[in-house]
Design a protein around this nucleic acid. Structure first.
Lengths: 221, 221
DNA sequence: ATGTATTTGTGAACATAGAAACAAAGTTCA
DNA sequence: TGAACTTTGTTTCTATGTTCACAAATACAT
């Protein structure tokens, strides 16, 4: 296991892909250098936070100058991609799953959805956005054979746990869970939950209970 | 603006919808009482954290007994729903947007997607999962007329900012942004970003750099 | 060359979140 | 009733994350 970046704060790690994407944008628009202030404007993260984030990797910038876009880009490419490609499978080719398959991941990074699984006979043995769809029955076998390490779970919540159990058996390392179910997995497996209903509800809760700037100050438009 | 829950930590606020959903599950399975330990098992949140979260709202439980499911449920319904319904519009009826329209939000809570917008003539003037699709040209007018307060943004990133500007003009209060774009909005508007590519990339980063329990300790099964 | 402008990298202060641990209160059962 | 058990609510501690503020280093203009 690579130890060089072991103690980088999780909050920082979550921002890295974001920085990377905006650096790509800057690069393709021909920009040679960028300051933490400019980057801050683009990604909406405090400039001090950006400098702090970058500093975990050493001194990447130059005082009085800023950061060299190409250098940063190369550096983060190495850091994020970590040489080898991670194989991802998508489980459940419904609307949400299809959205993922059409999303062009590999364009900006080395992440690539290798295979998809579903039970629908109309989808099995077709290709959606360049990705072959297998039958769910073959999940265990194919995941092992292909050495899939990450699964995106976009299945009905009723089957989320049983399918997760099979993924665990098939030696998966991480799951991106879009179902509302809270999955039981051994502690060696990492799960990120993205719960669409919760996201919407909590946004609404914030709107109602946490007045934003202009509402707190006396003037109300 | 309701001030009673003003200083509840954001982390707590984000967990409320989750608690609410699991309480609904418990209720429909006939359970009368529940302890923080049981709830912890179900939602995968430390029981002390759950008790702490609940305590912000006062003493909702009984020592030696736990929490009354019905009472909690009623309490959270009031807290989350805040009486009046929040009107939500979905902008962009692609795969991701369609996933939202078919997702049965109103089943578990009062959140309801009222209208959708798209530019595709095949979709305009149809209904998808019970929600009418309008043409994007009518966005400004309809949003104002209907008093829409929240928008779910599932459009191509190229048009994200211009559409956001129109939403701001139309007096929207909050945006759930699924595009990779970081939107410019006045500070009075709250935006939650959900960036699918970033989620996937950061999961992979964590897998590679943050060994989980069983990998750190010597035994590996 | 010299002086002024920038802009980084980081020490220190502050803010937020999570978890352990336990007294106090209530429950349960004989 | 009273003793043993349960479980909350909160105090305290620790960890994590963010921001300020500024010295040090470099760039740039004249």
């Amino acid at each position: 296991m690579t130890n060089d970046a072991m103690k980088i704060p999780q909050a920082t790690a979550k921002r890295l892909p974001l920085y990377y994407r905006f650096l790509l944008n800057l690069h393709s628009s021909g920009k040679q250098r960028v300051s933490s202030a400019e980057l801050s404007e683009a990604v909406k993260v405090d400039s001090a936070t950006i400098r702090r984030d970058f500093s975990y990797f050493g001194a990447l910038g130059k005082k009085g100058y800023g950061y060299n876009v190409n250098y940063l880009l190369t550096f983060f490419r190495k850091t994020l991609d970590q040489d080898e490609l991670t194989k991802v499978a998508l489980i459940g080719v419904g609307n949400l799953g299809t959205a993922f398959l059409n999303y062009n991941f590999s364009k900006n990074n080395n992440t690539k959805i290798e295979i998809a699984f579903d039970v629908d006979p109309n989808k099995v043995n077709t290709k959606i956005g360049d990705v072959a769809v297998y039958h769910m029955d073959d999940l265990d076998k194919v995941v092992v054979e292909e050495g899939i390490q990450v699964a995106i779970l976009t299945v009905p919540s009723a089957v989320a746990q049983p399918i997760t159990d099979r993924l665990v058996q098939a030696n998966i390392k991480g799951i991106l869970n879009f179902t509302p179910a809270r999955l039981n997995v051994p502690p060696s497996i990492r799960i990120h939950h993205i719960d669409l209903a919760v996201e919407l509800q909590s946004l609404i809760y914030f709107l109602k209970h946490y007045p934003t700037d202009t509402e707190t100050t006396e003037s109300v438009e």
